[in-house]
């Protein structure tokens, strides 16, 4: 059935999905709960959206890679709204997206204060210091093969350890404010970044290094003109992995004690008071910040390592 209607071109399918979704959302707001035709409209909208994605996938449209996930995301949001409103799911369990959006609009100044405490201070500072220290250490290790062979397996092992556990210790050492969170972030990002950078510094080939020697290039010239650029794809891989780790580290560290501001603090206290719409608002901010951080690094990567096969189009 869905396969049959997926033969239609995307445009009428999109219109049908939107119309049915509008009907269903209207029905979901009925005071007596969702009438049966509302559920039918919900299912219809879902089927149309599904067919739309299939049709998009087949159309070979240039922006299909962007439109398909967008349609999917909107469908999830719509189903969430229709089901929570229509079935009367209590807001304590799962608030509908519209309620979360209202909450974000109402209390953006609290959200901003939490964001600047957790993200602008703890995450960014810890990330910069941790990754910087890792790159510096990698450059030092690079000169000794003995240290490399010894440190790499250890670094790989440490990368698999539950480092988040040092959070209570850091809070004890550096106090409740953001420096303790930045310290957790530094420790969390250090080893993944170190391993990736050392791996990257090895990627310049013997032949290329010999060529640099025939040009009588010094250590720093070889480093700046050949080995660091060759290492860049690996380093960006590490930077991307670390961007999510940093946010997790800072938020979890706040569970162990904070001043009365910060995303982790807000989440744990509002959960205790069953203010789930505020929790979801905070999560939305965290998700947005995390995605934007990752996206920014991906953009820088594209600008810096434009020559790498994975970036060519």
């Amino acid at each position: 059935m869905i396969g049959r209607i997926a033969q239609l071109p995307p445009l009428p399918l999109a219109a049908a999905a939107a119309a049915l979704a509008w009907l269903a959302l209207g029905a979901a707001h009925a005071p007596a709960g969702m009438p049966p035709w509302g559920w039918a409209a919900t299912l219809g909208a879902w089927a149309c959206a599904w067919a739309l994605v299939e049709s998009l996938a087949r159309s070979g449209w240039r922006h299909a890679g962007l439109a398909a996930p967008a349609v999917f995301g909107l469908t999830v949001l719509f189903l969430w709204e229709a089901v929570t409103r229509g079935a009367g799911v209590p807001a304590v369990l799962l608030p509908p997206p519209s309620m979360i959006a209202e909450r974000i609009a109402d209390s953006w100044h609290i959200l901003w204060a939490d964001f600047s405490q957790t993200f602008l201070k703890a995450v960014l500072i810890g990330y910069a210091l941790g990754c910087g220290a890792a790159v510096a250490t990698a450059l030092l290790i690079d000169r000794s093969e003995f240290l490399q062979r010894g440190l790499l397996p250890v670094g790989n092992m440490v990368a698999a350890l539950p480092i988040v556990g040092v959070a209570p210790i850091m809070v004890m050492w550096f106090g409740f404010d953001w420096p303790s969170k930045a310290a957790v972030v530094i420790i969390m990002v250090f080893f993944p970044m170190l391993v990736n950078t050392v791996e990257g510094l090895k990627s310049a080939e013997r032949m290329q290094r010999d060529l640099m020697r025939t040009y009588a290039a010094g250590y720093w010239q070889t480093m700046g003109k050949l080995r660091l650029p060759a290492a860049a794809p690996f380093m960006f891989n590490g930077l991307k992995i670390c961007s999510t780790l940093a946010l997790i580290g800072a938020i979890v560290a706040e569970f162990f004690g904070t001043p009365t501001v910060g995303m982790g603090f807000r989440i744990s206290t509002e959960v205790g008071r069953m203010n789930l719409d505020m929790v979801w608002a905070e999560i939305a901010v965290a998700a947005l910040a995390g995605s934007a951080f990752y996206g920014a690094i991906a953009l820088i990567e594209r600008a810096v390592t434009f020559w790498h096969p994975s970036q060519r189009r």
């Binding site: 304590v92 369990l93 799962l94 988040v164 961007s243 999510t244 946010l247 997790i248 938020i251 979890v252 569970f255 995303m263 982790g264 989440i267 744990s268 959960v271 205790g272 069953m274 789930l276 929790v279 905070e282 999560i283 965290a286 998700a287 995390g290 995605s291 951080f293 990752y294």
Partner: peptide, 16 residues
């Protein structure tokens, strides 16, 4: 989904 700090959502999942 992995750029969302899921560990932040952990307390909510548990409590809910």
């Amino acid at each position: 989904s992995q750029t969302i700090p899921i560990l932040a959502i952990a307390p909510m999942i548990i409590v809910v």
